[in-house]
Amino acid sequence: MTDRSALQARLEQGIAALGLQLPAEAVPRLLDYQALLERWNAAYNLTAIRDPAEMVSRHLLDSLAILPYVQGQSLADLGTGPGLPGIPLAIAAPGREVLLVDSNGKKVRFLREAIRSLKLEGVRAVQSRVEEVQGQFDCITARAFASLADMLHWGGHLLAPQGQWLAMKGKAPDDELPGVPDGFSVRGIHALDVPGLGAAERHLVVLQRT
């Protein structure tokens, strides 16, 4: 078990390196989320990452790296798994309606417990396939969820007219760009420098309706 103060130092250094200003209570709540995920992971295998320090880098900071691109009053996180990036984003920038979507029952049970125990206001979890979700959202996030073509085919109906789709990828998905369906355009591809991930490549693809 890694000492919480060491995890806090790693998290705070990472947030500073990302140039983010978070609410005062964000860091302890992010660490509470990490501890809950670590505890549930022992029984439910929610993530392949087991090391707490790696969870800070690969889950918390990786999610927070896209915060500057998040906009609007509502966000849907598709294929959220154990709440990534949706829960860290909800903690870092409260006040937005957030819908966490996953088809895996174990993961959704964890999400509901996290929402309850962390008192995440405005955050809901739903067990559903993406194509069956209803509503429209100002911002949609999806982390290593599917190809750009599949993401937009399944979930494109959820993006509000002026909304922004944030697709989190490893290496730059140049081979996926020709598959972006009609009605959507790529507004930018941003290389993300996530503290603690070393040479691991991270990119964010920003899409909008045309």
Rank of each mutant, 00 (worst) to 15 (best):
R4S: 09
R4P: 10
S5D: 14
Q8V: 09
R10H: 12
L11Q: 07
L11N: 11
E12H: 11
Q13R: 15
I15W: 04
G19M: 07
P28S: 09
P28A: 07
R29T: 12
Q34W: 01
A35N: 02
L36K: 00
L36Q: 09
L36R: 01
R39N: 07
R39A: 14
W40Y: 09
A42V: 02
A42P: 00
N45A: 03
N45C: 02
L46S: 06
T47D: 12
T47Y: 04
R50Y: 01
A53W: 07
A53L: 13
M55L: 11
M55Q: 11
R58P: 01
R58W: 02
H59T: 04
D62F: 07
L64V: 02
L64N: 02
L64I: 00
I66S: 12
I66G: 09
I66Q: 10
Y69A: 13
V70L: 14
G72C: 05
G72M: 02
L75G: 03
A76K: 03
D77A: 07
L78V: 12
T80R: 01
P82N: 04
P85V: 05
G86I: 07
I87F: 05
P88I: 03
L89Q: 06
L89Y: 10
L89C: 12
A90F: 02
I91C: 13
A92F: 05
A93F: 06
P94C: 03
P94T: 04
V98Y: 06
L99C: 06
D102F: 10
D102K: 13
K107D: 11
R109Q: 13
F110A: 07
F110P: 10
L111D: 06
R112C: 11
E113S: 13
I115F: 04
R116D: 13
S117Q: 15
L118W: 11
V123E: 12
R124K: 14
S128P: 08
R129D: 00
E131Y: 05
E132H: 15
V133K: 06
V133P: 09
Q134K: 15
Q136M: 09
F137Y: 15
C139K: 02
C139E: 06
I140L: 15
T141V: 12
A142D: 06
A146C: 11
S147I: 00
L148Q: 12
A149D: 12
A149P: 06
A149Q: 15
D150S: 14
L152H: 08
H157G: 03
H157W: 04
L158C: 08
A160K: 04
P161Y: 05
Q162L: 05
Q162T: 08
G163Q: 00
G163L: 01
Q164D: 08
A167K: 07
G170P: 08
G170A: 06
A172R: 15
D175A: 15
E176W: 03
P178W: 02
G179K: 02
P181L: 07
D182Y: 01
S185F: 14
S185Q: 15
V186F: 04
I189D: 02
A191T: 07
A191V: 08
D193R: 14
D193S: 15
P195N: 10
L197S: 02
G198I: 02
A200C: 00
E201R: 13
R202C: 08
H203L: 03
V205T: 11
V206K: 14
L207W: 12
L207E: 14
